[in-house]
Nucleic acid binder design. Sequence first.
DNA 1: ATACATCCTGACCATTTGGTCAACAATCGT
DNA 2: ACGATTGTTGACCAAATGGTCAGGATGTAT
Lengths: 225, 225
Amino acid sequence: MTDVTETETLQPVRPGGESNGATRERNEREILEAAERVFARFGYRGASVQAIAEEAGLPKSNVLYYMGNKRGLYVRLLERMMARWNALLDDISVEDDPAEVLEAFIRSKMQLSRQHPEGSRLFAAEILGGAPFLQGYLRGELREWVRTRARIFEQWAERGLMDPVDPVWLIFLIWSATQHYADFEAQVLGIMGQDEISDADVERITRFLTQVILKGCGVRPSGGG
Amino acid sequence: MTDVTETETLQPVRPGGESNGATRERNEREILEAAERVFARFGYRGASVQAIAEEAGLPKSNVLYYMGNKRGLYVRLLERMMARWNALLDDISVEDDPAEVLEAFIRSKMQLSRQHPEGSRLFAAEILGGAPFLQGYLRGELREWVRTRARIFEQWAERGLMDPVDPVWLIFLIWSATQHYADFEAQVLGIMGQDEISDADVERITRFLTQVILKGCGVRPSGGG
DNA sequence: ATACATCCTGACCATTTGGTCAACAATCGT
DNA sequence: ACGATTGTTGACCAAATGGTCAGGATGTAT
């Protein structure tokens, strides 16, 4: 904080203009995004409020003014990520086409990892550390989410629309395979010798995963798509 | 450290007995294992030497006496994990049976995750944080490892022994699917409503993954095994 | 202009951080 | 028996940690 000699003399938050809670909104957004990056990189304990503040270009006191404390900030980020998560593949039914559902599942999960890589990594770091903040969510909401889908997969198998594979492990397989490209991005890039994963790469990977997983559990590809 | 009132008055390291570098060896092992757990749980920055020392049941000074500093300790753990890694599936050839090789790959990777879950998580945390210490390894050794295997997969495809899928993504798929059960153990347990993953679970998961992935990329299962 | 609420932040605090060091204890080689 | 090597650890340090707070700056409503 001693040397604030950033690019220019930081303006006094632009006096005129935005009214209402516009300032709050903007600053909170800024802080949340910075915090997501820092928590994702260093984990809960490894992230310092100071580092988050610097990432957001604000004094530490300001971050704490908006967020109360480190713990609250972290929980808020987790909840935001869970909300994105829950919006995913919210309603499927036995009547749906397995191929379409599985492909949509893979595709939307892949996009979530791509659109919110920091959030994905934040979540991963939380689980890696034993999910101290998410135990309840895992054993509650998420477990139900999985159960519901699993039941449908089983019914599909009974109807001969797919092989009788364990549906829970199938869900884990899809999660891991897609999550991988966010969480292990550094590894993927290192091995591919690139410095970013392009949209084209994502599309190819999505197709690859869809093809292998659908075929792997005996789902006939749908005509469309 | 102030209250060392552990179970009993800690013995003065058992005077008689071990000679040679036995003391060093034992203490180093103890420290490495403790450190692996702590680093895996909290990441590099989040882990404190103090926490590692407590986990090992030693004073902080003693940990630093053996390991020099935090950084060195961490690097040593990473190297140990890479060594285990490199021992995996070291030599395969185009002449081998794809089904056998792939199954052995899945199985041995699964076992590595199971036998060294803390090491797996340590590695995961390192990658998650952008692989600050492993950039070289990823872009060097590991990349070559992947290239070599990928070339063989391609030749199998050319010979019609499997579908012409992208071999690198196939390797990522196997990595992620197996690694998942170590890294996301907390999630897996939460959803399955268990408090540990049994040997039987591991066997079933291994079979599931083998079945789905082999079928998914058009590899005919081998007769044996 | 005045009152009121929101926003901003440097100074400060107790605690913890990684690391050093000196003094002491145990063991080994001879 | 004795010197040398190896092991042990509390005391200590500067820096960083999460968090508080007082006091000023800014904005809105009347």
